[in-house]
Write a protein that binds this DNA or RNA. Sequence first.
DNA 1: CCGTATCCCCCCAGATACTG
DNA 2: CAGTATCTGGGGGGATACGG
Lengths: 125, 125
Amino acid sequence: MEKSLKEYLAAEPGTMDCPVRSVLDRIGDKWATLVLLVLDDVDALRFNEVHKAIGGISQKMLTVTLKTLEADGLVSRTMYPQIPPRVEYALTPRGRSLLPHIHGLVEWSKEHMREILASRAAYVA
Amino acid sequence: MEKSLKEYLAAEPGTMDCPVRSVLDRIGDKWATLVLLVLDDVDALRFNEVHKAIGGISQKMLTVTLKTLEADGLVSRTMYPQIPPRVEYALTPRGRSLLPHIHGLVEWSKEHMREILASRAAYVA
DNA sequence: CCGTATCCCCCCAGATACTG
DNA sequence: CAGTATCTGGGGGGATACGG
């Protein structure tokens, strides 16, 4: 028996394994999607390369974000035992399968950003 | 001259009007997407109907979320001056144009939820 | 019925300093 | 280079009580 989307939404959050919430929370993560986007269109990036590609992210949050993405199997982490150490991050196939949807959102954002900003400005509480 | 996605991402967040961040932050909002989803497939819902449809949301956060969505022009708010008051919320055309993308994410989530949960369980910090 | 107003706590993110 | 460790504050969000 498949649970419907409505049932998932109406359920208490603790009832867990709601796919919408658990995954949307990750998409909604302030940094996670940005990391996925910078890893798109490249083979792999080193820690500091990702860091420089994303303005405003702290080292700590980048570490946390990368670990989470790795735990979810969306990003791979490859260590080359050298001195100095070299670590490369790349999208996994699973991560790559998510990116079209993110790009869909990005495109939508670009198309509607102006009118949304206009709406916000015109909106009086 | 169009700014590239990479330039947007590399820019400091303060540099603002980055479409990705400003809209993704809304998508990422813990409750906003859930509200949009429950308003899909219906004409309109009253405040308490939305409230009951989303498990775990507090009255305060629902109010805030609805206001934000209204300010962005994604949701419309219609008041019927009666006693007791009647207020209905519905998707605007703009909001409706966003929903396919959200559904795309939902579908992706459903397809990959199991393997993601498995990855998380298998992941040792 | 549909909210607002207020209080207050917790936790997350930023800053900073340090290590293999 | 690629991170950890520790501290700290600011604000998001829950609970509660009240208003039109």
